[in-house]
Simulated assay, not measured.
Amino acid sequence: MSEVNVMTPEELQKALDENKDLNIIDVRENEEVAQGMIPTAQHIPLGNVPEEVNKLDPNKEYVMVCRSGRRSMNASEFLNEKGFQKVHNLEGGMLNWKGELVF
Rank of each mutant, 00 (worst) to 15 (best):
L46A: 06
K86P: 01
G83N: 10
K55G: 05
P45I: 04
V87Q: 05
M73S: 10
I38N: 03
L46S: 08
N5H: 10
N48R: 12
Q42D: 07
M37S: 15
E3H: 11
G99C: 08
H88N: 15
L79T: 09
G93Y: 04
E29G: 05
S76C: 12
E51T: 14
V53G: 02
I25L: 09
N96D: 12
M64D: 05
D17A: 14
G69K: 07
T8I: 03
F103V: 07
M1Q: 12
E77V: 06
V4S: 13
E91Q: 15
L101H: 12
Q13F: 02
F103G: 12
P9W: 05
V4K: 06
A41H: 06
F103Q: 15
S68W: 05
N54V: 07
E91A: 14
P58A: 10
C66P: 04
D57C: 04
P9T: 02
M37Y: 04
E29I: 01
E32A: 08
L79V: 07
P45T: 03
N5A: 10
L79A: 09
L16N: 03
S2F: 05
V49A: 06
E77N: 14
A75V: 07
S68V: 11
S68Q: 12
L95D: 14
E51A: 11
D21N: 14
Q13W: 02
M64V: 02
A15P: 00
I38C: 05
V33T: 10
L95K: 15
V49F: 06
N96F: 11
G47M: 11
V27M: 07
L90K: 03
R67I: 01
L22R: 02
N74W: 04
E52Q: 15
E51S: 15
R70N: 15
D26G: 08
E91M: 12
W97G: 03
N19M: 06
N74T: 11
N23D: 08
V53D: 02
G47S: 13
K20L: 00
N30T: 01
P45S: 08
E77W: 01
E32V: 00
E81Q: 15
M37G: 07
N96C: 03
Q85H: 11
P45Q: 06
G83E: 09
K20C: 00
I25P: 09
V6W: 07
F84G: 05
V33D: 04
K60S: 14
L12N: 02
L22G: 01
A41D: 07
P39N: 02
V63C: 05
G36A: 11
E91H: 10
R67N: 14
A75Y: 09
R28E: 02
P58C: 05
E11F: 00
G69S: 10
P58Y: 04
N19Q: 14
E29C: 01
S72N: 10
E3T: 12
G93W: 05
Q13R: 14
S68G: 12
N59K: 15
K20F: 00
W97K: 07
E61W: 06
S76Q: 06
G93Q: 08
T40G: 00
N54S: 15
E100A: 13
R71N: 05
I44K: 07
I44C: 03
R67K: 15
Q85A: 15
K82L: 13
M64K: 06
N30S: 13
N80E: 08
V53Y: 11
N80M: 11
V6H: 10
M94S: 06
C66V: 04
P9F: 03
G69A: 12
